[in-house]
Design a protein around this nucleic acid. Structure first.
Lengths: 330, 330
DNA sequence: TCTTCCTACTTAACAAGTTTAGTTTTATTA
DNA sequence: TAATAAAACTAAACTTGTTAAGTAGGAAGA
């Protein structure tokens, strides 16, 4: 038997006043609307007694504001996004906002559906790390007038963006190897073609051309034994350096190298774009580029709040600096 | 200038029909309610033209159903919860439900506030990994009649629960050391006193008593240099084995051991409750207990759906099995 | 021809709050 | 003493979508 939740009206009837009075009191506007202290107490007591919880939807419907921000990421189980989500959630909580997180799994169709759901939920704003350039969604977003900030990945040149300069950072990394690579393998995940990766690949390419280093872009297969084969092939072809552009594949490469008896730091060198604390304890410790995740989250929220106030402003790009964690694999 | 979103009424006026007609058509009930094909097309076209997105709140308000589940976890940036969130989100998405994730940061007050917010949002159900036994929240949950399933951590004996048998699993781990410990340090994070940890501690304790192994429960400080000191002290006192009950501290211990020149596997042994893929690449590879995270998520969702249909059923405990990842640190 | 039925809709109540514009009662002032 | 003001509220409109009940007009059957 589904009993109805306590409503304002239930309290009003129980106390013998109008809905309006109850609403005033429970929104701490009792004094402003001249509700007597005794009645205020009566109403508050009854609300507690009946376990009253306001219906957020009714409130939002009337007020046209939800105090909710939609957060679109491709994969919360990726430590990068897990941390980003956490930071953004915390920042927004302090400002009185809730966050609705959705997971696109790098699927453009799903992304579209989920963003539609966020719009249905009347989020006041969105922070998006899009699976790719989102031409299809721009008109919808425009017509709803929901402010959007892109974080980590840039979905639209003209919109707000907070992230890192993937091109420049990747380029710099190529210069960071302890010995100039004879041949460089630029490795990324299979079927992963996010904007950030595109930019990183371009940066690495430019550096290689500047240095005259031969290079190849390697899309790593998903099965470990295929990875092992790929790496074997690369080593045989004379590749001695690996630039890993994707934190989610570094473990596979480590395993692949080990399975081929390649000793990192000696027989080959590796740098990873994206850090993990545990890299310090891997054998050998992995040199990696640490992205300022919290910073990105904090600035994205800050920017969104500016947008929430002044809607008509040109988009601004905020590029944050990365930090190279020099360990010993490079 | 904040332009209003397109509403049903806007479409109705533009086409010259009533709101009801538009509602029928856009909910694919046009035929059922005998709306002519031409009008249906007209309405659909206009809806697309005006970028109509239904207001979810208005719909939920009327229908008393939100197709939304609240998910309460202590820390999404913890890989355990990140994975749990992802699984639950995926499972629910396939069933036509959305998930609202909140982060309690192990703070009981915050947990209370956030759960209140989920109730305000009229979630149809909740999956909770509570920061602790949540006596304070039980009456509220009861009065709202929102079905709740506990995942990972058990908040109430009488409610549904999906997780692992922390007591037994921890107990077994003590028996897994390659050499019986001379003295065992049972390590957990500072100020972390989740239910799961309580149970794990109790299990470890019982095993130690059975084996006659002296042990100590160590709350690890948060600063690395203090950790180093703690570990130094333990080693000097003759502790040669570490049972780490908390995935988030294992890195600190690894660093502490290294800073004290202790070689794992030789001078000391370590097993971790909770696994991470990267443990295979740490030096030496860490033996760890892998929890069936996806399984927990999937079964929690399944259980919640049973609850959504039949509210009055006794609570059921579903204990899933863990897998010991034998590597070499033990 | 009158009744009945079907088609193609419309009207209005409803969900649960917020908010504007009133209303009644009491107190104060000219 | 009448007018004015303040105190303590209430009524009803409003947010948007759903849905039960109703209606107008035409066709078919008795």
């Amino acid at each position: 038997m589904k009993t109805k939740r306590t409503s304002l009206e239930d309290i009003a009837k129980a106390v013998g006043v109008s809905k309006a009075t109850v609403s005033f009191v429970l929104n701490d506007k009792g004094d402003e609307f001249n509700i007597s202290k005794e009645k205020q107490q009566l109403i508050r007591d009854k609300a507690k007694e009946l376990h009253y919880v306001p219906n957020f939807f009714a409130k939002s419907l009337r007020q046209g504001e939800t105090k909710t921000v939609g957060l679109v990421v491709s994969d919360i189980s990726n430590p990068f996004y897990a941390e980003l989500c956490k930071t953004i959630q915390e920042e927004l909580y302090h400002k009185g906002y809730n966050v609705f997180i959705v997971n696109t799994d790098e699927d453009k169709e799903l992304e579209k559906v989920l963003m539609g759901e966020l719009i249905q939920r009347s989020v006041d704003g969105m922070i998006i790390s899009p699976s790719n350039r989102i031409e299809a969604l721009i008109p919808i977003l425009r017509s709803t007038h929901i402010p959007v900030v892109f974080a980590d990945r840039q979905g639209d040149e003209n919109a707000d963006f907070v992230g890192v300069n993937n091109f420049e950072e990747a380029k710099k990394l190529v210069y960071c190897f302890s010995k100039q690579p004879k041949k460089l393998a630029v490795v990324l995940k299979n079927n992963s073609w996010a904007i950030t990766l595109e930019e990183r690949v371009l940066g690495a390419k430019e550096a290689c051309e500047e240095l005259g280093v031969p290079f190849e872009i390697v899309q790593l297969p998903s099965e470990q034994n295929e990875v092992d084969m790929t790496i074997k092939g690369l080593i045989e072809e004379g590749f001695d350096s690996f630039l890993v552009l994707n934190n989610m594949v570094v473990l596979k490469i480590l395993a692949g190298l080990r399975n081929n008896n390649i000793e990192l730091g000696k027989d080959a060198r590796l740098i990873c774009f994206d850090d993990d604390e545990v890299f310090a304890f891997v054998n050998p410790p992995i040199t990696a580029l640490k992205q300022p995740i919290s910073e990105i989250g904090i600035h994205a929220v800050e920017r969104l709040f500016i947008r929430l106030k002044e809607t008509h402003q040109p988009g601004k790009h905020n590029l944050r600096k990365c930090e190279l964690m020099v360990r010993s694999s490079h």
